[in-house]
Design a protein around this nucleic acid. Sequence first.
DNA 1: GAAGTGGCTAGTGTCGACAGTTAGCGACAG
DNA 2: CTGTCGCTAACTGTCGACACTAGCCACTTC
Lengths: 234, 234
Amino acid sequence: MTAVDLPDLRRELLFTALRGVEGSSSLAFTIFQEIAVGIVEGRLPPGHEVNSAELARRFSTSRTPVREALLLLERESLVIIPPRRRPYVSPVDMAQVREIYEIRASLYALVSELLVARASDAEIFGLRRWQGLLSADASAGDVDAYFWHNVGFRNAEASLSKNGELQRRLSSLGLQMHRFRHLSLSLPGRLLHSVADHERLVNAYADRDAAMAAAVSRSLVMRGYRAIERAGGV
Amino acid sequence: MTAVDLPDLRRELLFTALRGVEGSSSLAFTIFQEIAVGIVEGRLPPGHEVNSAELARRFSTSRTPVREALLLLERESLVIIPPRRRPYVSPVDMAQVREIYEIRASLYALVSELLVARASDAEIFGLRRWQGLLSADASAGDVDAYFWHNVGFRNAEASLSKNGELQRRLSSLGLQMHRFRHLSLSLPGRLLHSVADHERLVNAYADRDAAMAAAVSRSLVMRGYRAIERAGGV
DNA sequence: GAAGTGGCTAGTGTCGACAGTTAGCGACAG
DNA sequence: CTGTCGCTAACTGTCGACACTAGCCACTTC
């Protein structure tokens, strides 16, 4: 948790809740992760065509596992597979960004409600640890560390909702979101705002104030969206 | 829309929003649909093992498209594919039912909010048509017709939210839900309750009362859950 | 008689090959 | 020079085959 810049941690944070949904072959899942990381980090830009034969060569397997990986990617809406044509990295337009943020805001509001009802005091206290990391990162102005600790905080929240389906669904949305995350956080002043919101959120948890927690949670997400919007979209 | 018992209509209502996410091959999608219908209608009970070789024979194809279909089914959480073992129809336990209903309630509340903000008067009026069908079915005591018209109503609502991602996600949840739907509606008195709720909902839409609409929508879903719970679960 | 061990069978995961289709390119006509 | 047509190469979707694994049954051993 201290060394946030390890690729391993990143990957773990990204895919935890998706493991187990990996389809039968773990070979396919490996390829899936590899490509997914490439996409969310922008190395494979929208519209970039992915060639199953070439991938097969690169991972030195046959095309069958690659195809499965591509199907997994399609399920996460990271690639589009037109019939009989080359799959390509899905585009991100502003409308879709809005759609995803809307859903995310609602689901995190739900997480907050459930968390208030179901998490123990100790578990809620555990969130303060993440919060501490966040404010430290914000003071240090370390945007990247802040981002990954934020993901950790979010994952922790989701797991405390004690709703596995919800957790999995949020994880899937998160994967999409990571594609435009940099737009949301790197704006000046944004980090401090965000820290204040997190503080209010954890306080609401500690007070067992479900309505407040839900409201803060929702506004926290939507604030991120509005930041992107103001920044001029994707 | 009049003949609700046509398998075609059912299938269309079930899968509309999922088309386009079908993976590359439409052959796989056909097989996927076939099996999915079998599962949600209970012909393939939880725990039932599905054999890819046998399926390949039945659809007279090779195992490749069948495997893809199984992956699609897994993505909808309808089957579980343990590594190197036979895939089987996923079990439904009460905890998962609760989880899904919780998510569903939140997302339909969101649908209602968005709908109030974005749907035209004419579109909202269109919902009254479905509502009319629903009350007619309820009076006639036709549970089956009621159910499918209800699905239609829900799809219409989702589409009026003008959020494609949301629509797709709800459709995916819906597929799961259909597995225990009969428990929710066939209870005495349930239909009339439900009709009254739908009326309140559409009225809230017409009044452009987002908060009210969201609240009714949420309670409408959770009422369904509580009905199952009272009935003693799955 | 119970428990452990070995072979057998069914079925998955993976592979390489093939046919059909599509995009891209060049030749050709206008 | 531009638009159209046909060809070619590349790539997808599908297939049948193979190796390997899991689970089962008979057999041996205590």
